[in-house]
């Protein structure tokens, strides 16, 4: 987890916090010296007013903390109940039936997953791999052709053979061992593509796919975001310096084309399974019009959440600037 500390998360995503620690920190704030009260609060009356106002603010926070905790309890209970009520028992037919009621489904779904600590429930690389294999099975059952997995550190790229084995194993539970759906895993940054059918070799993306692929999986990490755009800028600057590229030709379309080859297409639906929306440095070029879905206080990769995201997508109107 040390690497993920290089990114700053927005305040509302700080996790694992109970009411007692919250009260504690509010109290500490009340008695600690004000942070930046150097010039504005010079006189004694102003100082008293400041302290009074600060006390009011912190007591508002106190009630907010109570409210948030109760809300959290209810939301967790709600999501537990919906998980129990909705669970499709690993049957593709049921999932397809759920999806068939919708007016449209997205062509590309992208999921932001977290690498949890090893000791947490469903944590570590194993947890991540099992989450990805579940998402794969749901996507294939729902009929979605492209799935992108974004994990900040890109940990799973070191475990591609394990990932492939796990996904196949999980798919065989859904679809039976006779006809396991075919999938491909593409890691744009490493320029690797592997197919579920060839156990051994890794094929370069340029060579034609051996079979009809049911699901294309793309694995992204933070290097595919801003750092890739920086690299692209370097390449374009060099080309411009050598007069191989006119500066006038650098357009949004050209950059889009380049980034589609380097990172892939923009997803139609961006799903975050965290307790609050945290984009975690997701490739900025690729979140232009994506419908974003997350559920407050949700923590797990859960079929009910996945289905509700698809329902939300089917109801949204697509209008470009209109």
């Amino acid at each position: 987890m040390s690497e993920s500390s290089t990114i700053k998360h927005p305040g509302n995503t700080v996790r694992s916090r109970n009411i007692i620690t919250v009260f504690n920190s509010i109290l500490r704030n009340l008695f600690s010296s004000p942070p930046d009260s150097d010039k504005e609060y010079k006189s004694a009356t102003n100082e008293i007013f400041y302290l009074l106002n600060r006390a009011i603010l912190l007591s508002i926070f106190f009630f907010l903390a109570v409210y948030k905790n109760i809300q959290y309890l209810f939301r967790r209970m709600g999501s537990r109940i919906s998980t129990l009520a909705y669970y499709p028992s690993k049957t593709p037919q049921l999932i397809r039936e759920d999806v068939s009621k919708l007016s449209k489904i997205p062509k590309r779904v992208s999921c932001i997953l977290d690498l949890r600590d090893d000791e947490d429930e469903n944590g570590g690389v194993d947890g991540l791999i099992s989450d990805i294999s579940e998402l794969t099975a749901w996507s294939i059952s729902a009929g979605i052709p492209n799935l992108t997995i974004y994990e900040f550190n890109g940990t799973v790229t070191d475990y591609l053979p394990t990932l492939r084995r796990y996904i196949k194993k999980n798919l065989s539970i859904y679809f039976g061992t006779d006809a396991i759906p075919i999938f491909s895993i593409w890691v744009p940054h490493e320029n690797i593509i592997i197919y579920s059918t060839d156990e051994s070799q890794t094929v370069h993306p340029s060579s034609p796919p051996p079979h009809q692929v049911d699901l294309k999986i793309t694995i992204l990490s933070r290097v595919d975001g801003k750092p890739t755009i920086v690299e692209l800028t370097k390449t374009m600057s060099e080309l411009a310096l050598n007069l191989e590229l006119s500066v006038k030709d650098i357009t949004t379309e050209l950059i889009d084309e380049e980034l589609v080859t380097l990172v892939g297409h923009e997803p139609d639906l961006l799903l975050s399974f965290g307790p609050s929306l945290d984009l975690q440095d997701y490739p900025p070029w690729h979140i232009r019009l994506s419908e974003i879905y997350w559920e407050p206080d949700n923590m797990y990769v859960d079929y009910a959440v996945f289905l509700r995201a698809l329902q939300k997508y089917s109801n949204c109107k697509i209008k470009l600037g209109k």
Binding site: T233, S237, A240, I250, I255, P284
Partner: peptide, 28 residues
């Protein structure tokens, strides 16, 4: 935003072309 990012890349490429950025590999 895409236009803004494109604008930024174009600005840098213009500067590089004019020779204002010395070491492209390290300074961008």
């Amino acid at each position: 935003s895409r236009d803004e990012i494109t604008h930024s890349i174009r600005e840098i490429a213009t500067k590089a072309q004019a020779g204002e950025i010395q070491d492209i590999k390290n300074n961008i």
